[in-house]
Simulated assay, not measured.
Amino acid sequence: MPAYWDWSQDWKNMPLAPVWDTDGGFGGDGQRNAPITVGEGRCVSDGPFANVEAQYFGDKAIPHCLSRGFASGAHIVRIGEPISPDALEELRETSTTFAEYAPELERRAHTFMRDGIRGEFRAYTGPYDPVFFLHHVNVDRLWALWQTSATGGEIAYGGPRHDTAGASAATLDDTLNIGNLLPSVPVSAVMDTSNGFLCYQY
């Protein structure tokens, strides 16, 4: 199993990406002739996650099958072009600040997933689909590449905080709190993936 899905390699024909393989991947599209379930998706019927039941869609209790609804043709090419290797390289080379790079990378990647895969990715319940995690690891990988590029910055960080009233400015001293999964640490502790706290590299 791959550690991340480099969707830039599949931007022209996403439905044929190896990540959707029935045996070695995560299963494919929703059943084409089945009823629509959520997010313009249909039940996934092949692969290791067929028949998985999700309980929510967005913030509403809507029990349903794991759902996908792949876009195709000209539409997938149109939303895929901004995350093509050439487009991502241009973004990396021309973005000199975190404020330029991070929001644009996020916009391109999330548009591709939301409008290309649909189903669970159309709401805040994307984590029901295991591919959600491969997608986000790839976003992390691309950020790490930008950080170590000539235009990036290893400690470049910013934007508004979303956990306080008034959306004050984010800083490297802000605390990352993820419940009981790991100890709380400052943002500065996770800016370098190869340091002692995270200890991984791409």
Score class of each variant (00 low, 15 high):
85 P>E: 13
86 D>P: 00
86 D>E: 15
86 D>H: 09
86 D>W: 03
87 A>I: 02
88 L>Y: 07
88 L>F: 13
88 L>M: 11
88 L>A: 02
88 L>N: 03
89 E>W: 07
89 E>I: 03
90 E>V: 12
90 E>T: 09
90 E>Y: 04
91 L>N: 07
91 L>C: 07
92 R>N: 08
92 R>T: 11
93 E>P: 00
94 T>S: 12
94 T>F: 03
95 S>L: 07
95 S>H: 05
96 T>E: 12
96 T>F: 09
96 T>W: 08
97 T>G: 08
97 T>W: 06
98 F>T: 06
98 F>I: 07
98 F>D: 14
99 A>Q: 15
99 A>F: 01
99 A>I: 02
100 E>H: 11
100 E>Q: 15
102 A>H: 08
103 P>C: 08
103 P>E: 06
104 E>M: 04
104 E>S: 04
105 L>E: 10
107 R>K: 14
107 R>V: 13
108 R>C: 13
108 R>E: 05
109 A>L: 10
109 A>K: 04
110 H>T: 15
110 H>C: 08
110 H>N: 12
111 T>Q: 09
111 T>A: 10
111 T>R: 14
111 T>D: 12
112 F>L: 10
112 F>W: 11
113 M>G: 10
113 M>W: 15
113 M>I: 13
113 M>L: 13
114 R>Y: 09
115 D>L: 14
115 D>S: 07
116 G>D: 15
116 G>Q: 14
117 I>C: 06
118 R>H: 03
118 R>E: 03
118 R>P: 14
118 R>I: 03
118 R>T: 06
120 E>Y: 03
122 R>Q: 13
122 R>G: 01
122 R>C: 06
123 A>G: 07
124 Y>K: 08
125 T>G: 01
126 G>Q: 03
126 G>I: 00
126 G>F: 07
127 P>L: 00
129 D>C: 12
129 D>W: 01
130 P>F: 04
130 P>K: 09
130 P>R: 04
131 V>Q: 10
131 V>T: 11
131 V>P: 00
132 F>D: 14
132 F>Q: 10
134 L>S: 02
134 L>I: 02
135 H>P: 00
135 H>S: 02
136 H>M: 10
138 N>P: 02
138 N>A: 12
139 V>F: 01
140 D>P: 00
141 R>W: 04
143 W>V: 15
144 A>I: 12
144 A>P: 00
144 A>G: 02
145 L>T: 04
145 L>V: 05
145 L>F: 05
145 L>Q: 13
146 W>K: 03
149 S>V: 11
151 T>W: 01
152 G>D: 04
153 G>A: 05
153 G>L: 01
153 G>V: 01
154 E>S: 08
154 E>D: 07
155 I>T: 15
155 I>A: 11
155 I>S: 14
156 A>Q: 11
156 A>T: 08
156 A>C: 09
157 Y>E: 03
157 Y>A: 03
157 Y>T: 04
158 G>F: 06
159 G>N: 05
160 P>T: 07
160 P>I: 09
160 P>Y: 04
